[in-house]
Amino acid sequence: MNISVRSLRCLSRGWRCFSSRQGGAMNVFDRSMKRRQKEWASALLDSDKYDYLRDEVGSRVADRVYDVSRTFPLALDVGCGKSHIVEHLSKEVVERLFLTDISDSSLRNRRECEIPTHCVLADEEFLPFKENTFDLVFSSLSLHWINDLPGALRQIQQVLKPDGVFIGAMVGGESLYELRCSLQLAELEREGGFAPHISPYTAVTDLGNLLGQAGFNMLTVDIDEVQVHYPGMLEVMRDLQGMGESNCAWNRKSLLQRDTILAAAAIYKEMYGSEDGSVPATFQILYMIGWKPHDSQAKPAKRGSANVSFADLTKIGKLTTDHQKTNDKS
């Protein structure tokens, strides 16, 4: 298989929405099922061969940590898995680190790194840390399984020190559209209806609002599209299982009929197959950066304090010409 990455600047329609009212947390995912899936995947003898997507995204999150150009005395990795971010960081950037995950097996099989680390078995929805503890919090490919994502972001903001930064990556709303469409068409044809087989994901249009409501400022949100090529649809589903990324939504359908799977595989290859016989699986990755407020941070100017009007932009050519004439006379 091979992986290609393409940066996107567009906004996409997502599959998961959040209520802005307080106490409106959703209960979409079976968290105990997700823990069992991650435990099973991490315990595989060849589990490392399914880490390619996490390694790729983890390196890109680490790049964003380096972009901050600051040394962080204490950092937290939320939903670390096998610590796919930390292996790309050095002690010059992060001096001490806490790793958290719901899977004990993932923590035990974590990657080696030069940074002193402390492992904590904890749910991302219930962080067991005091307020104003960490200088940096990061997370990669974990938050899309959170039921109460607004609440989890608020907890992350609370455990950060003032002027601390949160850098995260999560799967976005247009991910695996090839697999979703193929399964739905096959079920409609063979069974007369379809059930959800791909977990609902967060839309990029919601993410900035969620970060702002959680108390972050100086927000940055951008998108990457990672496309992985497989021999066929069955290999896509096998690798998702090996990653611990199988669907754990409460409304998931437990079994697929054999003829439906074969029909879906044929549709997948017909609609999306490449000339070399491979099929693509697209992962939309949402990256986010948010800062906890502090008095030292730059603040926007007060409304009405501007001394230049946008209306003057239409005259910029004439103003430049007049300025040049004045200089020539001088």
Rank of each mutant, 00 (worst) to 15 (best):
1 M>G: 13
3 I>S: 10
5 V>P: 05
6 R>S: 13
17 C>I: 08
18 F>N: 06
19 S>R: 13
21 R>K: 14
25 A>G: 10
30 D>G: 11
31 R>V: 13
31 R>I: 15
34 K>D: 09
35 R>P: 01
39 E>I: 10
39 E>W: 08
40 W>E: 11
42 S>H: 02
44 L>A: 12
47 S>F: 12
48 D>M: 05
50 Y>P: 00
51 D>E: 12
56 E>R: 08
57 V>A: 00
59 S>M: 05
61 V>P: 03
61 V>C: 01
61 V>H: 03
65 V>I: 15
65 V>F: 02
78 V>S: 04
79 G>Q: 08
79 G>S: 12
85 I>S: 00
90 S>N: 09
94 V>F: 04
98 F>E: 01
101 D>G: 02
105 S>E: 12
105 S>L: 10
105 S>P: 04
106 S>W: 02
107 L>H: 00
108 R>Y: 06
110 R>I: 01
111 R>S: 05
111 R>Y: 06
117 T>F: 01
117 T>M: 07
118 H>M: 00
127 L>E: 01
127 L>W: 01
136 L>A: 04
138 F>M: 08
139 S>E: 01
140 S>L: 12
144 H>N: 11
154 R>E: 08
154 R>M: 12
154 R>H: 10
159 V>N: 02
160 L>K: 02
170 M>W: 02
173 G>F: 02
174 E>H: 02
176 L>M: 12
177 Y>H: 11
183 L>C: 07
183 L>P: 00
183 L>I: 09
185 L>V: 07
185 L>I: 11
190 R>N: 14
195 A>Y: 07
199 S>N: 09
200 P>N: 14
208 G>I: 09
209 N>Q: 15
213 Q>I: 11
214 A>I: 06
215 G>N: 03
216 F>H: 01
218 M>T: 00
228 V>F: 03
230 Y>V: 10
231 P>M: 05
239 D>M: 09
245 E>Y: 09
251 N>M: 15
253 K>S: 13
256 L>E: 05
256 L>R: 11
257 Q>K: 15
262 L>S: 11
264 A>W: 05
268 Y>P: 03
268 Y>S: 11
269 K>L: 13
270 E>A: 13
274 S>Q: 15
275 E>K: 15
277 G>V: 09
278 S>V: 10
278 S>G: 10
286 L>H: 01
288 M>N: 03
291 W>L: 00
292 K>Y: 02
295 D>A: 00
303 R>A: 04
310 F>Q: 05
313 L>C: 01
314 T>V: 09
315 K>C: 08
325 K>I: 09
328 D>A: 09
